[in-house]
Amino acid sequence: MHIAVTGAAGCVGQALLPALAREPAILRILALDRTPPALPPPGGAAVCEARVGDLTRLRPEDLAGVDTLVHLAFQLMGGHGRRHDRAWVRQQNVALSDQVFRTAIAAGVRHLVFLSSAAVYGPWPDSPQPLTEDHPTRPRFPYAEDKVAVEQALRALAREHPECRVTILRPPAIVGPHAHPLLLQIARGRFYPAGGEQPVQILWEDDAAAAIARSVTTRTQGTFNLGAEPAWSLRAMARHRRRWGVPVPLGLIRALHPLAWRLSARAGDPGWVRGLDGPLVLDCTRAREQLGWTPRVSTAACLERLRH
């Protein structure tokens, strides 16, 4: 198998490349990004190649021989520069993703894997527990809106090209050594939203990478929820193996976070805090039964790994 990965230098990409390199069936990995990704050390069956460049310049000949494309590249809003331009971010996430998919199909790629997000479900105060993949998407902020739009574009493309398999993965917040700084700060800190009793899920980055690798090697199409278990409240996470935590009024978080977002992309999209009043519990039965995937790192183990 010959695999191409967009956004290979990103948080998930850095965990995915070694996971793909360990798969005997994968002979070549093409890592695509604007910045040079860290490639796995040589020695496995796969030949790894990094190609640095803008996806807007991707051509079918760049993907010659590739049979599967894993699309991780995605822009987050925040910080300085064009990341505050909603129209630009939308174009980068939605229009460019559609362009990349069409380029891949023109190159002969017959399996497209997209890393979406559990944020497509909201969450909302009335979100059911657990959420199955058949639950309607109800995005609550721009990042989730773009994920839903890319999912819709990908499904439309699959209808145009039934010869091409499509896999969509919906993980919750992915934590680990390469995770977004805001997620690491929340997971390692003692602060939590006051009244934060809504259950949510996280996922260790190696488990996310394993799910992507399973979807690649099994060529299983469909939409799949991913998540560590059990679901815990943010209060329980903050106080895990600790005597105390610090509750912060949700109104204060919502008031201050946009300012931090203006100063640094490390703060994350302000829309993320809107979902703190709703549960996000995923039913991962389909991933277990069809992908043969089960998370190895529990919620407690995720927190303990991050704090050591």
Rank of each mutant, 00 (worst) to 15 (best):
R83Q: 13
A238R: 11
A50Y: 01
S264I: 05
A107P: 02
A15F: 02
F141L: 02
R262S: 14
S233Y: 03
L280F: 07
H308M: 03
H71V: 00
M1H: 12
A213G: 12
R190M: 08
R22L: 08
V89F: 10
A4R: 10
V113I: 01
W88N: 11
L226E: 06
A260C: 14
R254P: 06
L112G: 01
P36Y: 07
R170P: 07
Q198P: 01
Q152E: 15
E205M: 04
P24M: 02
A300R: 11
A211N: 09
A238C: 12
D206C: 01
V175H: 04
L282F: 03
L96T: 12
T103S: 02
L256V: 13
A107K: 12
G81E: 07
A301P: 00
V216N: 08
W232L: 14
A107T: 10
A213N: 10
R235K: 15
P136W: 09
C48F: 04
L306D: 11
A213V: 01
A87N: 07
V113C: 14
L184D: 09
A208F: 03
D207W: 13
L96R: 15
P279M: 04
P136K: 12
F191R: 14
G176N: 13
H178Q: 10
V246R: 13
P162A: 03
G78R: 10
G278Y: 03
I174A: 08
A210F: 05
V273E: 04
L226C: 03
Q91F: 02
W232D: 12
E229F: 03
E49I: 08
S116T: 00
V66H: 10
R83K: 12
V52L: 10
A156L: 11
R138L: 06
A4V: 00
W244R: 15
A213F: 04
T68S: 15
I174N: 08
A187G: 07
T35V: 15
P142K: 07
L263W: 12
R170Y: 14
P162V: 00
A158V: 00
L55V: 00
A213T: 02
C284A: 07
S117K: 03
A301V: 02
Q290H: 14
I212C: 10
A231D: 13
A238D: 11
S117T: 00
A300M: 01
D62M: 05
R288C: 06
L282T: 01
L184F: 05
A95H: 13
E145R: 09
A73G: 05
L55S: 11
